[in-house]
């Protein structure tokens, strides 16, 4: 039974009975998860390694479609529209993704990395429009002042934290509705981590954010709502504050108090 004490009005995403298995004989990595994600808020997905949190996240922008063996069941609705009815190309423009390790395109400059979404989709823009998008996206991730003099250098010359913010800027350039982040700070040092966290809190005014993390304190610091997953099940979903103070499920409590995980 899922403890879902969250009433979400006009959710940006609603997940209905989603199950994902890595091949048709394997156990479900995500097991009949249903949840609604609040608009303009940070929703954290927590849980120990192998609990299915990344798998759930990658189902939201249909990254699993890249691997034919993976079986996905159930539905996800983005603003009420079934994502299986939208082409992956269009869907992924509306749902941006940031990965665990910073992965700027190694052959592209900082400028080209930000605008990569347009370039790779063959969308031609006037130079002023492009410059505007690049500047706005880099300002959104508080990277503009650091890189404005080296926009045409390779993105890979930046530090890890800067690279990760560049990847967030790349995801923002399309003005998506939702940004998915898969443990975005696990490869970063504490200073870079706190910068990314501040940034996410700032970004939720414009975007809806879903954040996978195995760092409980991070979830407590920045998220509005939290999901706790365990062995593929969504165990508990609620307001972060109440979940951290009065967890309803024993497994949540044990995880939050460090008994396992």
């Amino acid at each position: 039974m899922i403890l879902n004490n969250l009433e979400v009005e006009n959710p940006v995403l609603s997940i209905k009975d989603l199950s994902v298995a890595y091949d048709k004989n394997a156990k479900n990595a995500v097991n009949a998860v249903s949840a609604e994600v609040k608009r303009n808020a940070i929703t954290a997905i927590m849980g120990p390694s192998g609990c299915g949190k990344s798998t759930l996240l990658r189902a939201i922008n249909r990254m699993h479609d890249l691997y034919p063996a993976i079986v996905t069941e159930g539905n996800i609705f983005l603003n009420g529209e079934n994502i299986n009815k939208i082409s992956t190309i269009e869907l992924r423009r509306k749902i941006g993704m940031v990965f665990q390790r910073p992965n700027p395109f190694p052959t592209m400059s900082i400028y080209d990395n930000v605008i990569a979404g347009y370039k790779l989709n063959g969308i031609r823009l006037k130079k002023e429009k492009r410059d505007h998008i690049v500047e706005e996206s880099l300002k959104d991730v508080v990277l503009w002042d650091e890189v404005k003099d080296s926009l045409y250098k390779k993105g890979t010359f930046l530090s890890g934290g800067q690279q990760q913010r560049l990847c967030i800027a790349r995801a923002l350039a399309f003005q998506p509705d939702v940004i998915l982040l898969d443990e975005p700070t696990s490869a970063l040092d504490p200073v870079a981590t706190s910068k990314v966290e501040d940034l996410l809190v700032k970004l939720k005014k414009k975007y809806s954010i879903v954040l996978v993390t195995h760092n409980m304190t991070q979830a407590a610091r920045i998220s509005d709502n939290s999901m706790f997953m365990y062995l593929g099940d969504l165990v508990e979903y609620g307001k972060t504050k109440s979940m951290f103070t009065t967890p309803q499920d024993q497994r949540t409590e044990e995880y939050l108090t460090g008994k396992f995980g």
Partner: peptide
């Protein structure tokens, strides 16, 4: 995957 996540064909 970064390319696919941007919706690139």
């Amino acid at each position: 995957e970064a390319g696919f996540a941007l919706g690139a064909p």
